[in-house]
Design a protein around this nucleic acid. Structure first.
Lengths: 293, 293
DNA sequence: TTGCTCCTCACGTCACGTGAGGTGGC
DNA sequence: TTGCTCCTCACGTCACGTGAGGTGGC
């Protein structure tokens, strides 16, 4: 037979602090079973203990209160399990990333320098016809979005019987780095002639399209190793470009080199630089990305 | 040769957002190498890239900005490595706890109920002479503090040649559960006669002392399994006590049963309850803890 | 009567993010 | 001249924690 407990007693049973319990009441996550009308005292039922403990577990896993409310409120058991499983996957991938960061820090501390062997290649990327998807993406969502995007691109390649010409890649707008949210374009090069003559224009969001990526001069360097350490290559390559005063505007381009060729994921980072004609005084604007008509 | 970059460029090189960089400037964690006096533009040196990337790695590991500032500012290399190693240990133990929580949630979801086999024993704990240490402890520090405390108690047992009488344990004040910070007493029972006749009094903080823990009636239940899941036992035991209207004031007591006896860590949770005399109408106050003179 | 538990504001914390409104150089 | 990048407030967010000041029942 359930019985009513004071907030302090309920805190002892559930290991939730009194302050947290009041907060959960305020945001309508866990309201007390009853409130004394004269004193305003919150009264919790022993029947609420399991719910409170579930909340505590979820909070231990840093699940946001909104998400917990959704889980607790979902009458559909299937939907509920899906939400929880999704969060567990999220936590597990976070564990992996943390482990990788710890390892890379250990390397750093023990003097294993990964950036010293930097090889920079300067070259002109020609205009390339490609199948592409574009979208405003948040920093933390980039991994998931790229996975989705390439799956969609592959599906379209197959369904339209298009011929692939080289490794896939992505374009990252300045805003993506500067505000940690911005336009990203995932692309797969295709055979010439299959794409229209019109160059890339922004506007069509999140739709697979045939486009032509503009030609651009770049300084390029290949990153090998975990994705979380790609900032080392960015730092080294950006420093290389900066110290030679070669910087130009426009998105940074990454090429995802076929893992089959080397056994491990390798990423070629392409940093836009001025071209020779610009150095000769010609008026050559850097390629603009996402400017629209 | 280092060169100066705008904040936006520096953001691209370091993968820190512009907002974060301005924040780090404001809190004096990473000031730009120079500031244009007329425009106020921040100018960062390429020589600052490694520091910025180190900050990013530490933030990925959720190291607080104050802690990072201490690490970067410590001229003493040994001290610096110690601070970093400490944080890595911290992260690794957090990883372990998260893994355990994920596992326990999976169990919960798959219907493995750990609380159903609850056995509650009602009994009177006699007054017990003990060697004890007491302190105000925060919720997240409890594991570390208990480890320290028992090490100190063991050392004193050895140095004073005292005879141990049973498993160690701890007393947890109401405040510890309700505000997640409060008085905790770690103790090891010793042979009668070695302790003074005076009962426990608060006041002496963080010092090993001989005391007498007062007698108390309790409902007790043994928790087996990871420490992070002990809330299940608290919930079940507290519900048991609540539904029988047996609740009494005073600290909760845990006994850490000798692992040698069963192979795994087991914790006996003792919940104070009214004794029989109270039920018979006698005026018996619940034992008070930390009341002082 | 004193202590204790509980109550409600109101504000603080941490590490930024979100606009608003404005300036300077190409 | 237009756009772009940068600037400074001021306020918002998330999940509580920290007091201040006060009430009700034993």
């Amino acid at each position: 037979m359930p019985v009513l407990l004071s907030i302090g007693e309920f805190a002892r049973l559930t290991h939730l602090s009194v302050k947290a319990l009041r907060h959960y009441d305020e945001v309508r996550l866990l309201a007390p079973a009853d409130v004394d009308p004269s004193s305003g005292y919150r009264l919790y039922s022993t029947a609420q203990v399991p719910t409170a403990q579930l909340i505590r577990r979820f909070r231990d896993l840093e699940m946001p209160l909104d998400h917990i409310r959704a889980v607790l409120g979902s009458t559909d058991g299937v939907e509920r399990d899906r939400l929880i499983a999704e969060h567990l996957r999220h936590m597990e991938s976070k564990l992996d990333r943390t482990r990788a960061t710890v390892a890379s820090l250990r390397d750093l501390l023990e003097g294993r320098d990964s950036g010293s062997g930097l090889v920079v290649e300067r070259r002109r990327l020609p205009a390339v016809p490609a199948l592409a998807v574009s979208r405003t993406v948040g920093w933390d969502d980039i991994g998931g979005w790229l996975g989705d995007a390439f799956a969609r691109l592959e599906a379209r390649l197959a369904s339209e019987d298009l011929e692939r010409r080289g490794d896939g890649g992505a374009l990252y707008s300045d805003a993506f780095f500067q505000a940690h949210e911005g336009e990203v374009v995932a692309f797969v090069p295709v055979a010439a002639g299959t794409a229209p003559a019109t160059p890339w224009t922004a506007g069509a969001r999140d739709r697979v399209e045939l486009v032509v990526l503009p030609a651009v001069d770049v300084a390029a360097s290949v990153h090998t190793g975990p994705f979380t350490e790609i900032d080392a290559t960015y730092g080294a390559l950006g420093t290389w470009v900066g110290e030679r005063a070669l910087g130009a505007g426009g998105p940074i381009r990454e090429h995802y080199l076929d893992p089959a060729a080397s056994g491990a994921m390798r990423v070629e980072v392409c940093w836009p630089i001025r071209d020779d004609r610009a150095a000769a005084g010609e008026d050559v604007r850097p390629p603009r990305y996402g400017a629209g008509p």
